[in-house]
Every structure is written in C-alpha cells, then in structure tokens.
Nucleic acid binder design. Sequence first.
DNA 1: TGTTGATTGACAGTATACTGACGATCTAGG
DNA 2: CCTAGATCGTCAGTATACTGTCAATCAACA
Lengths: 170, 170
Amino acid sequence: MPSKPPPPITMDAVYAAPGYLFRRMQQIAVSIFMEECKAFDLTPVQYGALIAIHTHPGIDATRLSAVIAFDRSTLGSVIERLQAKDYIERKPAPEDKRIKLLYLTKSGAAILREIIPAVERAQARMLEPLKPADRKTLMGLLVQLVDLNNEVSRVPLRAEDALEHLGKGG
Amino acid sequence: MPSKPPPPITMDAVYAAPGYLFRRMQQIAVSIFMEECKAFDLTPVQYGALIAIHTHPGIDATRLSAVIAFDRSTLGSVIERLQAKDYIERKPAPEDKRIKLLYLTKSGAAILREIIPAVERAQARMLEPLKPADRKTLMGLLVQLVDLNNEVSRVPLRAEDALEHLGKGG
DNA sequence: TGTTGATTGACAGTATACTGACGATCTAGG
DNA sequence: CCTAGATCGTCAGTATACTGTCAATCAACA
C-alpha cells in the first residue's frame, strides 16, 4: 500500500502560514510606530513599560514583566535605557533587599503625555487599510487568540494577580 | 473655550493596541514553532529561508530578502548559520563577482522534507483555540492587512518580480 | 572610454527576545 | 536558629531586526 506522495514545496508554505503573517505584521507595526513617534526616541517596548510603571508606581521588574508580558531578561536592559534617559528611577525596597522599585520621573510622565497622540495615530494607521467593520473583527479575534494562547508564551500575561503581593493588601 | 481634558492613562493603552497584540501573537507563534520543531534545530526564519532557496535555487541574498521580506542585514548571519549547519552552500556567480548564489545541500533538502509536518502542526496549533470559521476570517484579514501595508515595512515583499532579473529571461 | 551612480555583500551599533545559569536574599519547615 | 527551596536581579550566549556605512563591483551614459 503506497503512501500518499508529499505535496510539492511552494512559497505558500511560507506566505500562507499564520506564523509568517504574524511576523510580517509585527514588523510593519513597529515600523509605523517608529515613524509616527520618531520625535520622541521611544520604542514600542519602552512605551509599554512607561505606561505600566505609570499605572503601577513602585512596581518591581519581575511584576512589571508579568503585567506587560515582556521577557524578564530583556526587561533589564529596557529599564536601564529608560533610566539612562531619565524617564524612570529605581529605589531599593526597604523590606526586601532583592527588589528595586520603579517610578516615573517628571520627564517620564511628561513624555508619556506628549507621545500618546502619536502612538494613537500609529495604532490607527496599522489597521487603516481595512474597512472599519473588519478592523473590529480582526481586533476581536486577535484578543481572543492571544488570551487563549496566553500560557504558551514564556511570560504569560498576569495583569491583575501580579499586583496582589505588592503591598496593597493581600 | 477650555480644551477637552485628556483621558486617563490605563493599561488599555497597551492591551487594546493592535501593535501590542501583534507583538504578543508573534512571540506566541515563535514559541509554538520552536516547541514543535525542537528536534530539528531550525528557527522560523531559517525555515523560511530554506523554503525560498528550495523554490528558487541559485537565488542571491538580496533577492532572497525580497522574496521572504526579511531584512537584508540580518539575512547575512542567517545564511552563515545555515551554511555552518551544512544546509546550504554558496557559489560565486561567474558573471557578477559581487553575487553569491545560494543552493540547498542534500542535508538541507532532507531536513526540509522532514521538518514540514512539524511546521504544519505548529501553524495549526497557533490558530487551534479559535473556531474553524474564525480561523479563516482571521487569516483572510491578516493576509489583506499585510498586503495593503506591504510598502510600509523596510523590506517590502517582492515575490514575483524579484526573480525577473535572475537569468530566466528578462 | 572614463566617470557617475546603483547594487551587492559585509560590518558596526543599537534594541528586542529567549535559554540557562548565578549570587544575594527571602521564606518556610523543622 | 538554620537549612532547603523559592524569588530577585543580573549576566553570558544565541538569534532576529533595523540604521547607517563601506569597499568592491557593475551598468549606463556622456
């Protein structure tokens, strides 16, 4: 009993693969972000970190990584760069010598206010080629897919419970 | 006439942003790919390059970058690694001393045949959490979006015309 | 034919990502 | 109190990405 012959190898094995499309779209998204925000010297990752530190002042690096689902090893250098630009500062935690608490500086809060309109333009541009109804459909499906695949990634998102042990009562 | 107060800054500025979702999904996709293909020591990028070299034997690095929309600078090191693993070889082009032509080796062709089922499992797993109809919707919208944003990225995809000057008649 | 301009591959510098390991530190259990 | 295990930040090593630059080479035109 002969086995089915394997299908021929074409570029469709690349072009039609979800992984390839996600990679492409991510690169396009970064490109648009950097273009709209070139006046600010902030990367998408640095922007995300600033938002999270603004929302959770005094967070530490490990919890920050859980709140935005960024890799903890990488986050170290991201934090260094934000500190070098004087957008955040790190203070030792009095009750735990391992931890360094993160706070926005005045510059950090200021640049965050200023960059937000540019970021919103960038986010809108990414989806602009689609019809409005399709944008909503795509975003809805993406949110679902990312959420349902959450545990697969190295750093699953832990939005709420990541902060329970942060001294706000738990 | 007072201007509208800016809306409060919340984590939604991150979680609901298309760029964030694309980044997350790309990371999840790579994670699934590496998990399914861990027996093969090939990254997604290296896999894409192998497929393209298989489909277009004798392609050079610049055209390869156009065919898979990978950055040309990065592609140099990708090619080096594939060559170090003995999956491809580079031959100087007789008619143009600048160019090095890329070919699969026997090992390269063999590993490509072997890895394809694992890659297909990976691609299927990425979309698995969605209902079948939703998978199609998402892929359709993504293909559209990547295509319509093609010119935005640093290396736009040039699938067909990239090969017109490759000596097949032009 | 000789110079200009484009192309090719390579490189340096920066920024994400992930793996795996490490010392310092904290927490729980005995 | 003291040790076993967990956690925190950090680091080394590898792999993508992008910007900008460079020498070698080629193509086109005056």
